[in-house]
């Protein structure tokens, strides 16, 4: 029974939904909802990377650049052009997708670490633009985001944003699971294993990689837009190299290629610093140590290892 559940396509979705419903009942204060909302947002961004890295096997060390793009779209659109923030959320995602399409073509010809440095450079350039074009972006201290109103209700408070972000993540996870099971998803997994073999099998490798890159960018931009709207502020730091690394870390720690893994990885890196505050000055050292320990003992990531263990126990 459990074994079948573990293998079922939408099991992840039901589990996620169950957790999302349970958290508000268990949370002692609104602070926990805020942390959970941040987890959902970063999980959404990490999901994009899961499609790119986990399915297609392509690394991006500049993904936070798209996150920032989505955030600034929600900040700049309403402030400079008087656009509706919700519309800007989608515009930002579209913009990120278009940009990914343009730069993806030349960049994705590169392989392995060369792709990593190219995406890194792309992310650094984007972050630098957000940082420097103060007239548009407010410069290094960031830019305020107008509060979002949907159907006449102002979105404010941790509880409201908890449900908005949870809903967004659920939709994102649903789409990711469908992509995984689609012909495109299978093609991506094939080229993950071997590009040469995939090409030999008649897969248009370049196009599939580009598709994964564009989808990943759209996920990240959407997450960035939500983050900016939720915080009421976006800073260029959101697009920084360190955040790109953080997103990659989420995907790898949670489990490369697993939708639930992206969520677990995001939870790991968002909740852990909150839990470690009791350690005060030792916080950073312990965080680093825990990342190492987890990767040494669970090199395939938390979720795949756990899943494998459960399946072995059941059979």
């Amino acid at each position: 029974m459990l074994g079948r559940l573990l293998r079922a396509r939408y099991a992840t979705l039901f589990l996620l939904a169950a957790i999302m419903i349970a958290v508000p009942y268990l949370a002692p204060s609104a602070f926990y909802l805020r942390v959970a909302a941040v987890v959902w947002v970063f999980a959404l961004a990490a999901l994009g990377l899961t499609i790119l890295m986990g399915y297609a096997g392509q690394v991006s060390l500049g993904h936070a650049g798209f996150l920032g793009l989505g955030g600034y779209a929600v900040a700049i659109g309403p402030a400079r052009f008087g656009l509706d923030p919700v519309l800007c959320l989608f515009l930002g995602a579209a913009l990120a997708g278009a940009l990914a399409f343009l730069v993806g073509r030349p960049i994705l010809r590169l392989k392995g670490y060369y792709l990593a440095i190219a995406t890194l450079g792309f992310g650094v350039i984007l972050a630098l633009v957000f940082h420097s074009e103060s007239d548009w972006t407010g410069g290094p201290d960031g830019m305020a985001v107008a509060r979002v109103t949907v159907f006449g209700t102002r979105l404010a408070g941790a509880a409201t944003w908890y449900w908005v972000t949870a809903g967004a993540l659920l939709i994102g996870a649903f789409l990711a699971l469908n992509i995984e099971a689609s012909p495109t998803g299978r093609a991506l997994k094939a080229l993950h294993d071997s590009e040469v073999a995939a090409a030999g099998a008649g897969i248009d490798v370049g196009r599939k990689k580009l598709a994964a890159f564009v989808i990943g960018a759209i996920y990240a931009a959407f997450a960035g837009g939500l983050l900016a709207a939720m915080n009421g502020l976006i800073t260029p730091d959101a697009a920084s190299f360190m955040h790109s690394i953080e997103l990659v870390a989420m995907v790898i720690i949670g489990g490369l290629g697993s939708v639930l893994g992206a969520v677990v990885g995001a939870a790991f890196l968002v909740v852990l610093p909150q839990a470690l505050t009791v350690l005060q000055e030792y916080e950073q050292a312990v965080l680093g140590l825990l990342i190492m320990v987890f990767m040494i003992f669970l090199p395939a990531g938390i979720v795949p290892t756990l899943r494998k263990w459960l399946l072995e126990r059941l059979s």
């Binding site: 890295m53 690394v59 690394i245 990659v248 870390a249 790898i252 720690i253 490369l256 030792y282 916080e283 950073q284 050292a285 312990v286 965080l287 680093g288 140590l289 825990l290 990342i291 190492m292 990767m295 040494i296 090199p299 395939a300």
Partner: peptide, 19 residues
């Protein structure tokens, strides 16, 4: 372990050393 896992370990090590 895969190269990505190893790289992740070095990133963890970097955070640890700074800490």
């Amino acid at each position: 372990a895969s190269p990505v896992a190893l790289i992740m370990i070095t990133i963890g090590a970097s955070i640890f050393i700074k800490g």
